[in-house]
Design a protein around this nucleic acid. Structure first.
Lengths: 139, 139
DNA sequence: ATCGTAAATTAGAATTATTCTAATTTAATG
DNA sequence: CATTAAATTAGAATAATTCTAATTTACGAT
């Protein structure tokens, strides 16, 4: 391991190649950062810090562009929480989250660990898009 | 009806009196706006527009202050959605929401219309605070 | 390989929602 | 009515994100 390539990175790089997005150095670098450790949650600022730490020269605007484009093309997922930042999630499967209000930490909840025995009727004329559960926790 | 006082307004005004907050003209006016139509969802900007429409002179800063203080003292509830604004909800009971991504409209879901048959184990050392369900819908 | 072009990158400005600041006014207690 | 802590206010500040417009790059077609 630790050779800057692994299963998660390879899968994401492959998704990038298959997408209509162009494969640039910046996008490759950002994918390596994001998918280095499997399922993770990042803010744009987190990613930009890591970029700097690695001595890469990628502007914050590009980080935002990449994260947004990746999200649009299902390489990433975005998560809104009760704090004011957008989190990007490398787990693109349908799942839910714990959000710790003390530490602002997000933790995945696998779909199979939340089951509904009752869901409300969708208002007339509208279509169901998704059901998002956030389990807020504290220290 | 329509005499600028009704059950919802009276209840909220009573909560204000019982709270440690001071009863000011601005707070009375804002409560009248918020609770005029029973359960509703507002952004600070919505409330400020209504204030202007009624010819009241209440600054946007005061609107924010009031909404935040009311929330802290359980006269209102705040709701975060996948859009970038904070919504304030006059329904302070525990409940969930539909969020229409097309219209940015929030609709209450009564607690009794969502039931879980399985919930995940809370991570060690953490305490459950709340479970929030957002059912995203589209036109 | 080289070209042409649409897409990507960039620095910095702009935007948007919200909070802060510091001066003034007000509510409510004694 | 006098006191004082809280509330109000206009406008500045902040923070996350998006936009602008100039430059560079990827990559399919020649």
């Amino acid at each position: 391991m630790n050779m800057n390539t692994n299963k998660h990175i390879d899968v994401a790089l492959e998704l990038l190649k298959e997408s209509p997005l162009k494969v640039t150095n910046q996008r490759n670098d950002i994918i390596r950062i994001l998918f280095k450790n499997g399922n993770c949650h990042f803010t744009a600022e987190d990613v930009h810090c890591e970029v700097q730490k690695l001595g890469l020269n990628i502007s914050l605007a590009t980080v935002y562009n990449c994260l947004n484009q990746f999200t649009k093309h299902k390489i990433l997922k975005s998560v809104k929480t009760s704090c004011d930042k957008i989190y990007f999630d490398t787990n693109v499967t349908s799942h839910h989250h714990f959000f710790c209000k003390t530490t602002s930490q997000l933790i995945d909840i696998d779909s199979k660990n939340i089951k509904f025995s009752k869901l409300p009727k969708i208002p007339g004329g509208k279509k169901l898009q998704s059901v998002e559960v956030v389990v807020n926790i504290t220290d």
